[in-house]
């Protein structure tokens, strides 16, 4: 035996276990994406899917958010029948759409719209879902958002949009891009009519959604840590070849640079929305002289 053999690591064969991890049922526990803390899924749900250890806000699907934001989780849904098609005949788009539908039994597209109440006050809401096609905006997302804006305008109701999106749906190329103009034009009408629009950025909101309706709120809110920006970090690093700060494009970064009114913890979101809505309805009906 030579002396260097003392320092080499012995190699062992790994024998696969007879009973692979069947003991912990899937979905019972959850590991935090940020800090790695393992916690009971039920506890996490109770905590509105915020990590009890580090405060990381897990991404929510549209229906999860509706359940925790609207009174009794009740939503009268609009435009449930709108479905995407493949207008460009883009390679692979049709099958990708089918995959997304199969994986999201409760969704037909990346946004759910409708009306309900928050803190007893009636609102029109649009809630995006990142789990459907990365929340990308194609014709259907643009149309549903536009119709929600129009409903708010017609019914004279406040509008709240929870955004989350990777940006434009490039499989619909120019039609996708034009949804930015369409939704913003609708918001121009709402704006002129004095309608209230509260925009809530959730993780992540980038590209075409960030650069259209999501940035046009009378009040722009964001959840802690939410990534909000136009161009993605990788694109920027490749273009300018500069190291970006760790907190780049987080909600806190945006707040610091004057792009947001406030960063609101998920536990306080409903309360804050109620307070803002109340500011716009309280005192109504009082005559000028009081």
């Amino acid at each position: 035996m030579q002396i260097k053999d003392l320092f080499t690591k012995k190699k062992y064969a790994t024998v696969p276990s007879e009973r692979p991890k069947r003991d912990i049922p899937e979905g019972l526990m959850n590991k935090c994406t940020r800090c790695g803390t393992i916690q009971y899924s039920k506890e996490l749900e109770k905590n509105l899917k915020v990590c009890s250890s580090c405060g990381y806000h897990f991404r929510l699907s549209a229906w999860e958010r509706i359940a925790m934001t609207l009174d009794e989780g009740q939503l009268t849904e609009y435009d449930t029948e709108l479905v995407s098609e493949d207008p460009l005949g883009f390679p692979g788009y049709a099958s990708k759409l089918e995959q997304q539908l199969a994986k999201n039994p409760n969704l037909r597209e990346a946004v759910v719209t409708g009306e309900g109440t928050i803190g007893g006050l009636p609102v029109v809401v649009a809630v995006m879902s990142f789990d459907f096609f990365s929340g990308s905006m194609g014709s259907v997302v643009g149309e549903k958002i536009t119709r929600a804006v129009e409903a708010a305008l017609d019914k004279r109701l406040p509008l709240i949009i929870f955004s989350t999106s990777g940006g434009a749906r490039m499989q619909e190329s120019i039609l996708s891009l034009m949804q930015m103009a369409k939704t913003s034009a609708a918001l121009s009408k709402l704006h002129e009519a004095g309608g209230l629009f509260i925009s809530v950025f959730t993780d992540p909101t980038m590209g075409g959604v960030s650069a259209s309706f999501a940035s046009l709120g009378d009040y722009n809110l964001a959840e802690p840590g939410a990534l909000v920006g136009f161009a993605g970090r990788i694109v920027i690093e490749q273009t300018i070849r500069q190291k970006l700060p760790d907190n780049f494009q987080t909600a806190e970064f945006n707040l610091q640079h004057g792009q947001l009114d406030m960063v609101v913890h998920r536990n306080d979101m409903k309360h804050m929305l109620t307070k803002l809505l109340d500011m716009h309805t309280a005192g109504e009906g009082l005559s000028n002289g009081g």
Partner: peptide
């Protein structure tokens, strides 16, 4: 696409123009 543009609100500037 750059940090300076993001800091000054690239998204907001585009959205407002629309």
């Amino acid at each position: 696409p750059g940090n300076t543009a993001e800091e000054r609100g690239q998204s907001e500037a585009i959205a407002r123009n629309l």
